[in-house]
Computed example of a mutant assay.
Amino acid sequence: MSATTDRKPSVLFVCVHNAGRSQMAAGFLTALSGGAVEVRSAGSMPAEMINPSAVEAMLELGIDIRAEKPKVLTTEAVKDSDVVVTMGCGDTCPYFPGKRYEDWVLEDPAGQGVEAVRPIRDEIRTRILGLLGELGVTPVGA
């Protein structure tokens, strides 16, 4: 889907706890798309709060995800998204024929310090830039 259509493309990021990887991905896509992409994130078993090391790692790049809360994955969120990016949720993620799915194999930042989260964050940023290109959206401030 191109950014030149009447409707914004939509992307859903899913991981188990919706506290690290999916929140960082959503933060990057929100910031780098400049609002040209509708962004969602959710988890199959949401945590109580976002991983503080993920928050710190993102703040280092000027992206503030402190106000985000882990959300439960719903079938509606999957149905309403053009692209579903899973990050380690395996069989707990719902699947709908006709949706574009990507599975990003990334280390889980749970319980790790910011030093260990930085390389995960940087890999997510690289993948987000690739996804923007595939969606036909020019990154903002990249």
Rank of each mutant, 00 (worst) to 15 (best):
V84P: 01
V72I: 15
D108F: 00
D91V: 13
V140N: 02
M24W: 04
P109L: 00
L61I: 15
S2I: 13
A110E: 09
T92R: 13
R121W: 00
L59D: 08
V11Q: 06
N18M: 02
S10G: 06
V85I: 02
Q23C: 06
S53A: 07
V84S: 00
G141M: 04
K99P: 09
V11I: 07
P94F: 00
D122C: 06
R118H: 15
R121F: 00
G113A: 11
L129Q: 04
V55N: 06
F13L: 06
G35D: 05
A36Q: 09
P97F: 15
L106H: 00
N18I: 00
G27M: 05
P9D: 08
I124G: 01
I63M: 12
L59C: 11
E115D: 14
G136A: 12
P97S: 14
L132Y: 01
Y101A: 11
E56Y: 12
L129S: 04
H17P: 07
M58E: 07
G113D: 13
A116P: 02
F96E: 13
A26G: 11
D122F: 04
L29C: 09
G20A: 04
V72W: 14
E38M: 15
R127T: 03
A42W: 04
A25E: 05
V16T: 08
E115W: 09
D80P: 07
W104R: 09
F13M: 06
P70G: 03
D91Y: 12
A26L: 09
I65Q: 08
V140R: 03
S53D: 01
I124F: 06
S33I: 13
V37W: 02
I50E: 05
A67R: 15
N51M: 08
Y101M: 10
I50K: 04
P97R: 14
K8I: 09
E123A: 11
E60T: 11
A54V: 04
K79S: 14
I124N: 05
S2R: 15
R100S: 12
A26T: 06
V85Q: 00
G98M: 11
P97M: 12
D108T: 01
L59S: 12
A31W: 05
E102R: 08
F96L: 10
P94H: 03
A19L: 00
M49W: 15
P46W: 05
L135Q: 04
D122M: 01
E60A: 12
G90R: 02
D103Q: 12
T75Q: 11
Y95E: 07
T4Q: 11
E134F: 08
Y95H: 09
E56W: 11
A116D: 12
L12H: 02
Y95T: 10
Y101T: 08
P52K: 01
T4V: 13
D108Y: 01
D64M: 07
Y95W: 11
A54L: 06
A42C: 12
V114W: 10
P9Y: 05
R100V: 10
Y95D: 03
M1C: 12
L106I: 04
S22T: 10
H17Y: 10
E123I: 03
S44E: 00
K69E: 10
